[in-house]
Structure formats: C-alpha cells, structure tokens
Amino acid sequence: MSTEKRRQLASIALIIGFFVVWELACIVFGIKDIVLPRPSQIITTLVTRFPAILPHAIPTLVNTLIGFALGIIGGVAIGALIGSSRLAYDVAYPLLIGFSSIPKVAVVPIFVLWFGAGFAPAVLTAMILCIFPIVVNVATGLATTEPELEDVMRALKASKLDTLLNVGLPRTMPYFFASLKVAITQAFVGTVIAETVASNRGIGNLMMIASANFDVPLVFAGLLILALLGVALYVLFAVIENRVTGWARRKDEFAGG
C-alpha cells in the first residue's frame, strides 16, 4: 500500500504546488488582479462573499444534477436500443455522430426560444451535453458482448430481455460508469453555458456579471466553485463505480469488499 500512499501524496503535492507557483508567479512578475488574481485572493473572495455566491451555486448544482439524471435515463434507453441490434447500431450511428458534432452552445438560443430563459435551457443543455458519451458507451458495451456468451444464452432459450438483464447490462456497467465520469463534467459545462447565455441565476450568470464589472477575483471564485463541484461529483461516481464494477479491474481489495 505504500506505493498507493506515495501516489496520493504526490497528487496532493502537485495540487498545492500548482497554486503556490501561481501565487509566486503573480507576485514575482507583478501581474495585476484584473488580469490574473492570486489564488489567495480568490479563496478570500470565495470565503468572504460566500453568502452571495451560494444562491448561485445551488441552482447550478441542481440544474446540472437534473440534466444529468435526464441524460442518464435517455442515454441508457437510447444506448440499450441501438446496442442490442446490429441494424439499429449501423443505422442510428451516423445520426448520433451528427448530433454530437453540433456545438452545444449553438442550441441554447433554440431552447430559450422554446422554453424561455432560466431553468429549462440550463437543464436541457446539461442533458444534451452529457447524453452522448452515455449513449455511445452503453451501445458499445452491449454491441461487444462475446458471441459465445450469446450462444450460451440462446442455447438456454433465453429471451432478448433475459439476455439483456443477465448479460448485456451487467457487462456494460464498466463502460456506463466510465461514461458517467465524463458525462457529469460535461453536464456542468452545459449548465454554465446556458446560464451564461440565458439566465439571471447560477454560477454562469454570476461570472458574466462579475466580468462585466471587472470583478475578476469573483470570476475566478466562480471557476473555483465549478471545479470543486465537478471534482466532488466525479469522486462520488468514481466511488460508486469502484463498488459496482470492481470485477472489471480485478483488484485484490475487491475480494474483501
């Protein structure tokens, strides 16, 4: 376990080192606050103005999580559909790639047009940003099921649903969780884009207003909040992934837990 500990320490040292270098660089080169505030200033801003930031952070988090949940539901459904049939896979893939190539910032105005500014565009943008990695991974996981495993199921005269529930979906879990870690960070990007363009609440909006007022430390405080939320959710899903799909990594610890 000492190598594991050493890796963790190195990781922490790198994070601290990054901020220390940043701080020192600002001081040594005399960089102005308005260009790049020092980390200490950003943290001070975050702490002192936290009561003002919190009402913006909560809607961002809530919108992201709702969009993410919708993305999971839609992504698993579409992924399962096109992953369980060769034909659907081949037919739907070009359309899917087409959709995922569209810059998502371009669709925010359309959502605003349809649903008005505020809550709905943020949730929908978060959803469409996080749905594609989930669809692609679930479909890939299902489509790459070993033929011999399918033969075993067919010899048992298992129905399509039996095969999906007992073999397809469990086998897809590592792909699914890998996509969730990408998807949650994408969902944040989606929410913030929508908030920046069309909302009067949320971290995106806060940062827009702060930059308009040249309140650069507050802009960076917003970024820091986003980074912290993103990391927290990423860690949450990494922990769940470890518990659910430990078999795919064959770790010794998994035998105990």
């Binding site: 011999e148 048992l156 007992n166 073999v167 078999w247």
Partner: peptide, 26 residues
C-alpha cells in the same frame, strides 16, 4: 440444453455460485 466451450465464458461480475445459478434463473 447445456453448453460448454473451450473458453469458460463465465460472467466476471458473478461469483461461481451465481454463475452456475444462471440456467436456473432462465
């Protein structure tokens, strides 16, 4: 019908008991 191949094709996410249980489930 029961089938066995050169490759054991057990499900890696299930323990041996649950793997052997699979046909009884279906």
């Amino acid at each position: 019908v029961g089938m066995a191949f050169q490759n054991p094709t057990l499900l890696p996410w299930l323990n041996l008991r649950d793997n052997v249980m699979l046909p009884l489930k279906i």
